[in-house]
Nucleic acid binder design. Sequence first.
DNA 1: TGGATTTAATTTGCATCTCGAATTAATTTG
DNA 2: CAAATTAATTCGAGATGCAAATTAAATCCA
Lengths: 399, 399
Amino acid sequence: MKTADPELMRAMNRLSVLDTIRRRGPISRVEISEGTELSPTTVSAITGSLLDDGLILTRHEGDIRSETVRGRPRVMLELNPAAARVVGAKIAASRMVFVVTDFCGEVLATLTLPIRIDRQPISVIADIVEDGVRRCVLDAGLSLVDVHSVCLGLPGVIEHRSGHIRSSPILRDTNVDFAAEMSARLDTTTIVESDATAITLAHHWFGRARDLEDMVLVSLEQTLGLGVLHNNRLFRGAGGLSHNLGDLVLGMSKDGVVRLSSQAGENAILGFQQTDGRLAEAVRLGRGMAHAQTLIKADDSQLITAAIRAGETIGFTIANIVTLFAPPRVILVGSSLALGEPFLNSLRDAYSLAIPPSLQGVSELVFDDSNDDFWARGAAAVALYELYESPWNTTGPAR
Amino acid sequence: MKTADPELMRAMNRLSVLDTIRRRGPISRVEISEGTELSPTTVSAITGSLLDDGLILTRHEGDIRSETVRGRPRVMLELNPAAARVVGAKIAASRMVFVVTDFCGEVLATLTLPIRIDRQPISVIADIVEDGVRRCVLDAGLSLVDVHSVCLGLPGVIEHRSGHIRSSPILRDTNVDFAAEMSARLDTTTIVESDATAITLAHHWFGRARDLEDMVLVSLEQTLGLGVLHNNRLFRGAGGLSHNLGDLVLGMSKDGVVRLSSQAGENAILGFQQTDGRLAEAVRLGRGMAHAQTLIKADDSQLITAAIRAGETIGFTIANIVTLFAPPRVILVGSSLALGEPFLNSLRDAYSLAIPPSLQGVSELVFDDSNDDFWARGAAAVALYELYESPWNTTGPAR
DNA sequence: TGGATTTAATTTGCATCTCGAATTAATTTG
DNA sequence: CAAATTAATTCGAGATGCAAATTAAATCCA
C-alpha cells in the first residue's frame, strides 16, 4: 500500500485544486477554498505553486458579482491552455479520428482518416496511426516534442495499465503491446485505452455527466463497450482491464455460446441485409448505420425487425448493468443510435421491463449522438487526467 | 472531496499498520516497517499510540528466527482481542445465525435459530433478530454495552450507506430502514449489509482470498448474490447499493422477463420436485439442498436435469461477471453447491465455453462450502472493518 | 476627495506528520 | 565480560495544513 507522507498529501490537494479549477472555469481562490474545504491559506499556497509552474493563469475580470459588491475583487484563476498539449484518437474499423487538444481539453486540430483498417496486420495499423498523429500535430501548428502524451482509444479488451491490447474486433493480432510500439514510433508517452472508457471521461468532463460522480456509459458501435465512472474516477476491472460488453453471453444453444455482439452489434443488425447492395457498400465505408436509418424511414420491415430485436437485447443488458453498478445515469452512445425510433423505443421498453422493481428510478437513460471528435477528445482527456494526477513531477517542495 | 490534512495522513497510516498487524498475525515492528514501506520511526510512533489505546498487545515470544540470530530480539505485536466485540449475523429464509467475535474476528459465541421467517412482517423479524442478538451476546458472557456494533447480513438489494433494505426475498416489506430500526432496539450501532458482501469479506480476511486484492464472490442460495473486492476494498454500486445477481435478466419471452433467480435459484431447482413430499418438507425446513443431494446420488433424473440446467446458466453468468470485473479468482459459495457433481460440472463446462478467449486464464473458479457461521463471521468482519477504518476516533494527536 | 468599510489574499506562527541519523536497548558470540 | 549485532526509540529537520493577524484593493459615503 502507498504510504501517506506529506508529499502525497500535497499531491492530493494539488489535484483537488487543479481539478476544481478545470471544472469550475475561471474561479477565485475563495470559491476554491469553499469547494475543496481547504483553508484559504492552503489554497493560496497551492495556487501559487501552480502559477509558478505555469499550469494556471490569473484573470482580473469575470467575477460575476462585481459592481454589486464591495471589497477587494476576486482574482479569477483558470487553466493555462498552453501548459501542455496532448493527442487523442479514436480508432475504429472504418476510420480514425485524431485531435490535438490544449491543457484544457479544447481542440486545436482534428484529422479524420476514412480508412478501413479492419483486421489489417498490426504493423500496417501502426503505420497509419503514426502518420495520423504526426499529421494532426502538424495541422495544429505544433511539433511532436510539444506533445506531452498520446492516448489511443479503440474497441476491445484493453489492458490500460500495461498498454496491451488483449483482443480487438478491428485487429487481426491478439495480445499486442501497442503502447510500447507506438511510444517507440512517436517517441512520446502513449496510452492505450478502451474507446468506451475514453468517451466516458469525455462525458464526465465536457458532456452529459459533468454533474455526476457515478455513471455508466454503454457504447453501441461495431462492438459494444462499457465505461464506468465510480466516485469521480474511471473504474476498470482488476488489473486495469477494460470491459467489453460484446463478449457477454446471452445464452447457450446446441451450436455453442450466443454472445451479445452476435445479437446486437452493428454487423448483427446490418448483416442480414445482404440483399441491398448499396447498404453493403455503405457498411464497407463505415456509413452503414446512416444508410440503415434511411432504409428504416422507408419502412424496410426486415431491418426494422432486426433493430427492434437488437434494441430489446440491449435494453435488458443495460438493466443488468444497472443491477450491478446502480449508477444514477446511463449514457448511450454510438452509431447504432442512428437506427432511430424503432430501435430506441424497443430498447427503452425492454429496459423498463427488465429493471428490477427495487431499482426502479435509480437510473435514467440518456441517449447521446456526439460525433467521432468527441470520442477522440475523450481519449485526450484520459491523457490529460494522467497528467493532472501527477503534477508532483512538476514541482519540488512548494517554493 | 475529503481534504488531505495531517490527520488524514495519520489515519491512513494507522489503518495500514493496524491492518498489517491483523493480517500478519504476531509481527514485529521491523516487519511492519518493511510491509508498509513506512519508516521504523513512524511505525514505532503509530504502534505506540495503538498500544496506548489498547488496540494491540506486545508479546515477547514467537519470533521464528530467535535462537539462530544475534541482536536484540524482536517484540511481536498482535491485535488485542479484548479491544472490542462485535456481533455478526446471517439472516436467511429458514434460519438465522449469530456470532459474537472479538477484535480479531475470532468467534466467542454462536447461536443458530432454525426459524422460518420467510415473508413475515418486518416487526416480527426484527423481534427475532433482536432476541437472537441479545441471546448470543449473553451466551458469550457479555452484555450489549460491551458490543461496539452489530452487522446484519441478508440477501437482497441493500443500501449499505443508509441501512435501508430496498428489497429482500425473505421480506414481505420493501424499502425498510432496518439499520435505524435495529439500532434503536439494540441501542447499538447496527449495520445492514448484503450477505454476499459479508462473506466476501470473510473470505478476504479468513478464507480463500487472503492473498488477493481483487476478487469476486458469487453466492448461490435461495437467491443469487455477488460480492466484489476491488483493490483490497469492498466494491459496492453507486450509492452503496449491493448487487443482486438473481435480478439479472437472461432474456425476454412473450410472458415477460426471464430472470436468473427463476432459472437458477434454489426454488427454481427444487421447485419442480413437488412429487416428493419429503423434499418439499425438507425445503420448508431449509434443508432442501441437502436432501436434493441424496436424491441426486440416487439418480433422480428430473432433479439432475434441473441441476444441470441451473449449473449451465450460472456458469455463463459467472463468465459475464468475469468479463466485467476481470478478477483473478471467483469464489462460489452457498447451499446450491451441495447439488454435487452434475451441477458443478455443468457449471464449469458452461463457464469454460462462455469465457471470452481474451480473458481465458485470468480467473480461476474456486468452490467453497463453508457453513453459516462463516457468513455470520463475515458480517462481523464488516463491522470490524468499519471500526478499524475509523481509529482516529480513539486518539487525539499522537501522544 | 479621502477616510471608513468590506472582502480577498497573503504572511506569520504553531501543531502535526514523516523521515534520516544518532542513540539507546537487549540480545548472542567468543 | 567486551564486541558485535539487531531492534526500537529519540532527536532534529523538513514539509504540510490551519487559524489568526496582516496587508491589499476595491466600494461607500460624508
